[in-house]
Design a protein around this nucleic acid. Structure first.
Length: 571
DNA sequence: GTATTAACCA
């Protein structure tokens, strides 16, 4: 009985003829009904069974797990008269894949360890737990699991390698992910390869990911393509991502909804309304609007393109339940300076996650409404049980920097230390920026000195701080907006410190963003028109006339100078 | 019969 139709026919015949199916057959039927979402029918069969074995319990428990009813699944788990390792592993994986049941998963795993003699732990338990570790990003758990796997010789199969690579990558240990992947020595396993390509993308090592992708390309599946397309889009290489999308079709792969979500991401990164409209039409034509990832992607494209009217229309059609869509709208209104509307949307949400809070916080900062930022922080602390995360605090520290408010800045700094909030690179940079803009370059410098992993933003902020305090020596220090000069200058800073890898990364970033170093130029206002020129510039229409005038002027200046020197000598 | 890789919002 592999198909539902077959199962239903058999079930009907059994009822009509009065023949009671065996426990074995009924177990099969329960699994079949559960697979097709017929949970009630499955449960009815379960209730009517005169005898149940361990397979019966496993079937009904996993039926509830599949339908995301973990409370009922756990109730059945607790009342089960027969349980084996599969029962435990199913319950464990149910908890791991659901949101908000992480503690339950950990507790169950502890219970399994205590009952190791009766139940045992196998490779399924271990890979499921690695998945949880990756989700929670707790490296120490991951390391313990890895050691256990090595000890029990469970560390070399495809499932183990892919889970380990994924775990180390999500715990921000790219090097260890590489070591596991290249150390396993066996044949190239597709899922492990895909996990490693994803790890490269997460690390920003796109070239490495691409090389791996083209190694044994006949192995590649749609996940390999989707991973690469998404990786390019997320690292700011939107055009390359779209090119890969075309190449994917040329290689005979049809796109999936995952592919499309990444394509939307690339389009919103390009901030092109024209492209956005084309993609929107495509989505409508292919009936993809019901996918929440895709519909919120469309809203995001219109928000990033600055067309809030269109964004509003699509958002209204999506329904307000899509929190991604709402967040995009908040960011969109904020970028237009419409904080009233942003606030209204924020208030309309019954559940507010940290991304939504961050969106509103940074909206107020961008609109320079610093008082609103401080008020929002009090509101957050009154409403939420959790402490504000680093991204929220960056906004608050940023507001202090704008107002040059050193006392509130110090208070926030003390609050962060008191609450033991993890100071990541971005928060540290914000702090350095705040102290330097509040006029205390010494504090800024102290924080800077204590940071061991200095990234591009941090150097940027510190250099700007020195420049503003008149401490520039590295004439390169002309701090302006995001232009090529700044990247080049940073690359030079890294080069001076011998950080060649970092320098290479900036150069790569420049290529990706197509940033070009602009030569410093001067301008002159003649007859209602601005004329710009650089040193040695010969591009002006009247370049010959200009240079001959310059020769005359230089000669005249020379004469005047000679005259003055002679006069000086007489005096 | 349970497990692994890819998607949206700061």
């Amino acid at each position: 009985m592999r198909f539902l139709k077959e199962g239903l026919r058999y079930h009907g015949c059994a009822i009509k003829s009065g023949v009671k199916p065996t426990t074995f057959t009924t177990n099969h039927l329960i699994n079949l009904y559960s697979k097709h979402g017929l949970l009630q029918q499955a449960h009815k069969l379960f209730d009517e069974m005169p005898e149940r074995n361990v397979f019966t319990w496993n079937a009904i428990i996993s039926a509830y797990i599949k339908s995301r009813n973990l409370t009922q699944a756990r109730a059945l788990f607790d009342s089960a008269t027969h349980k084996d390792l599969v029962t435990y592993n199913s319950m464990l994986s149910g908890y791991v894949s659901a949101d908000g049941y992480e503690t339950h998963a950990l507790e169950l795993f502890v219970e399994m360890q205590l009952m190791r003699d009766q139940i045992g732990i196998d490779e399924f338990t271990l890979t499921t737990m690695l998945n949880l570790t990756a989700k929670l990003s707790v490296l120490s758990y991951g390391r313990q699991l890895h050691s256990f796997m090595v000890k029990t010789a469970n560390d070399l199969n495809g499932f183990a390698v892919s889970s380990l690579v994924d775990m180390y990558s999500k715990c921000e240990r790219f090097g260890e992910a590489c070591r596991v992947f290249y150390g396993c020595g066996g044949e190239l396993d597709l899922v492990s390869k895909n996990a490693m390509v994803a790890a490269c993308c997460r690390e920003g090592e796109l070239e490495m990911g691409l090389n791996l992708f083209w190694r044994e390309p006949e192995l590649n599946d749609i996940v390999s393509w989707n991973t690469l397309i998404s990786g390019y889009a997320q690292n700011g290489y939107e055009k390359e991502s779209l090119k890969l999308f075309v190449l994917m079709a040329e290689n005979g792969f049809r796109w999936s909804e995952h592919t499309f979500a990444s394509v939307l991401n690339a389009c919103s990164g390009l901030r092109s309304l024209k492209l956005g409209k084309e993609v929107h039409a495509w989505v409508l034509k292919n009936g993809l609007s019901s996918n929440p990832f895709i519909s919120s992607g469309i809203v995001d494209i219109y928000c990033k393109g600055g067309n809030m009217k269109y964004a509003e229309l699509v958002h209204a059609a999506n329904g307000i339940e899509n929190s991604f869509s709402v967040t995009s709208m908040i960011v969109g209104h904020s970028s237009q300076g419409n904080m009233v509307e942003a606030r209204r949307l924020f208030d309309s949400l019954t559940e507010k996650n940290s991304v939504v809070w961050t969106a509103l916080f940074s909206g107020y900062v961008k609109s320079q409404q610093c008082e609103a930022v401080f008020e929002l922080l009090s509101e957050f602390r009154a409403k939420e049980v959790i402490v504000p995360d680093a991204l929220i605090l960056i906004s608050v520290v940023g507001a202090c920097a704008i107002q040059a408010a050193i006392d509130p800045g110090k208070q926030i700094h003390a609050y962060i230390l008191r609450m033991g909030i993890h100071l990541d690179e971005k928060l540290m940079s914000a702090m350095v920026d705040m102290y330097s803009k509040c006029g205390n370059i010494t504090y800024a410098e102290n924080i800077f000195q204590r940071i061991t992993h200095r990234d591009l933003i941090l150097y940027n902020v510190m250099i700007a701080g020195y420049a503003h305090h008149g401490r520039e020596k590295e004439q390169l220090l002309r701090i302006e907006d995001d232009n090529g000069a700044r990247y080049v200058q940073l690359a030079n800073v890294y080069a001076a410190e011998g950080k060649w890898a970092e320098m290479g990364r900036i150069r790569k970033k420049m290529r990706g963003k197509e940033v070009k170093k602009l030569a410093g130029c001067s301008w002159v206002y003649v007859e209602n028109k601005v004329h710009t020129f650089t040193s040695g510039d010969r591009s002006h229409m009247k370049t010959e006339a200009i240079y001959s005038a310059l020769v005359c002027l230089a000669a005249e200046l020379n004469d005047i100078a000679q005259e003055e020197i002679r006069a000086g000598a007489v005096c």
